[in-house]
Design a protein around this nucleic acid. Structure first.
Lengths: 121, 121
DNA sequence: ATAAACGCTGACATTAGTGTCAGAGTCAAG
DNA sequence: CTTGACTCTGACACTAATGTCAGCGTTTAT
């Protein structure tokens, strides 16, 4: 199929499909006129890429295990583990940081509110 | 004082001091030779800017209430509240999203680990 | 045959604060 | 007077995925 159809079938923009190709995630054939020609299997591939991108993984990280994941039905691929661990650590670090900022904001808001109340008494 | 001294006193790079100026957060005088000439009070101003940047606020947001905050000792400035509220909402949205990803990652890691264990039995 | 719809490549923009460099002017101490 | 330290402006880079546009070729339907 051509790129427009793949785009509608996957909900991924044509621009992004070309980008994924440049990042080595998909490698379509070419028709004689130069148009990209995708296998029907690519629909699944692109949806898989989408899924990992939504996990916050980069295209480079995804490239590291995509082939394995696509061949072996599920996660028989041990190479995903270090990436998952790294991402998990990163996420948890961010959560801690955000919670600190959140606590700080709440403190400050309470303080401002307190001042406002004093002024209305 | 000149920019180098302000930089060392605040721990903020010269580059960033010039950027804050461009964003309207600080407005130093100029010596006859064109060098920036900062009041000693600017040290406090810059530290305050740093504090708000660390809360994740943008220079544009900070510009909205910095003058008030600097004049009135603490947070008598009600204009900070909407910005705090907005930031808090944003932070909490991010925390929720990160927690979803975290749960998803943990699920997947458990699943991969399970497969690995099955293969060693 | 022509127009509309589709595809191609390449390039620039986006975000926001910071690093870094070039080329030039200024100043202080020796 | 010269050298080194300081300052100035302006510009490009960065991160990473996506949007968007220009300019051009191709296909399809009328």
């Amino acid at each position: 199929m051509k790129i427009g159809k793949l785009s509608t079938l996957t909900g991924v923009s044509i621009r992004s499909l070309r980008y994924y190709e440049k990042q080595g995630l998909i490698t379509p054939e070419r028709l004689t006129n130069g148009y990209r020609d995708y296998s029907p299997l690519t629909v699944h591939t692109v949806k898989t890429i989408k899924l990992y991108l939504n996990l916050g993984l980069s295209t480079e990280q995804i490239a590291g295990f995509l082939t394995c994941v696509l061949q072996n039905k599920e996660a028989f691929c041990l190479e995903v583990m270090p990436i998952y661990r790294q991402k998990l650590a990163e996420i948890e670090r961010q959560i801690v940081e955000l919670n600190q900022i959140r606590a700080n904001l709440l403190d400050r808001m309470a303080f401002v509110q307190l001042e406002a109340n004093l002024n209305t008494e």
